[in-house]
Simulated scan of single mutants.
Amino acid sequence: MARPRSDDKRAAIMAAATRIIAAQGLGAATAAIAKEAGVSNGSLFTYFDTKADLLNQLYLELKAEMGTAALGGLPAADERAQTLHMWSQWMRWATANPHKRRALAQLQVSDEITASTHEAASRTMTGMGRILERSRANGPMRDSPAALAFTLCNALAEATIDYIISDPDHADEHTQSGFDALWRMIA
């Protein structure tokens, strides 16, 4: 008979996986993740069929969390104000959660993440995508492929986040500078 699953244990496994992957990379053993979570290795596999399943679920959760944070409290305003809000919230989430950001970056490029998981993660980011699409509708990138615009946006975000982390005393100024560059690029 299968053991009942606990939401708390699953959450502990996901949090531990995030920390271990951020510190050790995707090659980290499931035993290390289980130990960090305070569960047996066998218990980990009660929640996830395989390590790849764990990685795919973690990727989805982190992308959804980042998207939710970026859109939280979105003002009913024009595209520029909404894009600035989204950008600022994204910067706050990433700098407040460096281990989640590092784990997400590794998962993003992992061969273990399936195409269907990437598609599901994209759907969690739809709100952010709509804001960027409206923002670039009349800008210099209006005829560029959306994927290119979003990839450039992400690269600019990563550079801005790195700079904020290196100089946290000026986080607001760096956030604004990064946004100004983004706005000039897309709008």
Rank of each mutant, 00 (worst) to 15 (best):
residue 74 L to M: 08
residue 159 A to I: 05
residue 1 M to A: 13
residue 127 G to I: 04
residue 154 N to C: 08
residue 75 P to L: 11
residue 187 A to H: 13
residue 18 T to H: 01
residue 55 L to I: 00
residue 41 N to I: 04
residue 169 D to Q: 14
residue 1 M to T: 14
residue 80 R to N: 05
residue 181 A to Y: 02
residue 56 N to W: 01
residue 56 N to T: 02
residue 144 S to P: 08
residue 178 G to E: 08
residue 41 N to G: 11
residue 21 I to W: 00
residue 47 Y to H: 06
residue 10 R to N: 07
residue 127 G to Q: 04
residue 99 H to T: 00
residue 131 I to Q: 03
residue 133 E to C: 04
residue 89 Q to E: 12
residue 63 K to M: 09
residue 64 A to V: 09
residue 133 E to V: 10
residue 33 I to S: 09
residue 11 A to W: 05
residue 149 A to K: 08
residue 30 T to W: 12
residue 104 L to N: 02
residue 160 T to C: 05
residue 12 A to R: 13
residue 180 D to A: 07
residue 23 A to N: 07
residue 46 T to Y: 05
residue 16 A to K: 04
residue 173 E to S: 09
residue 75 P to F: 01
residue 166 S to W: 12
residue 4 P to G: 03
residue 143 D to K: 11
residue 24 Q to W: 12
residue 82 Q to T: 03
residue 95 T to Q: 02
residue 150 F to Q: 15
residue 19 R to T: 01
residue 32 A to N: 08
residue 10 R to K: 10
residue 136 R to T: 03
residue 17 A to F: 02
residue 182 L to K: 04
residue 164 I to R: 06
residue 53 D to E: 09
residue 79 E to T: 13
residue 148 L to F: 09
residue 13 I to M: 06
residue 38 G to P: 04
residue 114 T to E: 15
residue 122 S to E: 15
residue 105 A to M: 04
residue 32 A to F: 03
residue 163 Y to I: 00
residue 116 S to I: 14
residue 96 A to P: 06
residue 110 S to E: 09
residue 186 I to R: 10
residue 154 N to F: 06
residue 181 A to V: 00
residue 19 R to H: 10
residue 187 A to E: 15
residue 12 A to Y: 01
residue 155 A to D: 15
residue 7 D to Q: 14
residue 155 A to T: 00
residue 59 Y to P: 03
residue 4 P to I: 10
residue 166 S to E: 15
residue 116 S to T: 11
residue 159 A to W: 06
residue 111 D to K: 02
residue 139 G to A: 11
residue 95 T to I: 01
residue 143 D to H: 04
residue 112 E to A: 14
residue 68 T to S: 08
residue 81 A to R: 13
residue 104 L to I: 00
residue 146 A to M: 12
residue 119 E to G: 09
residue 6 S to H: 12
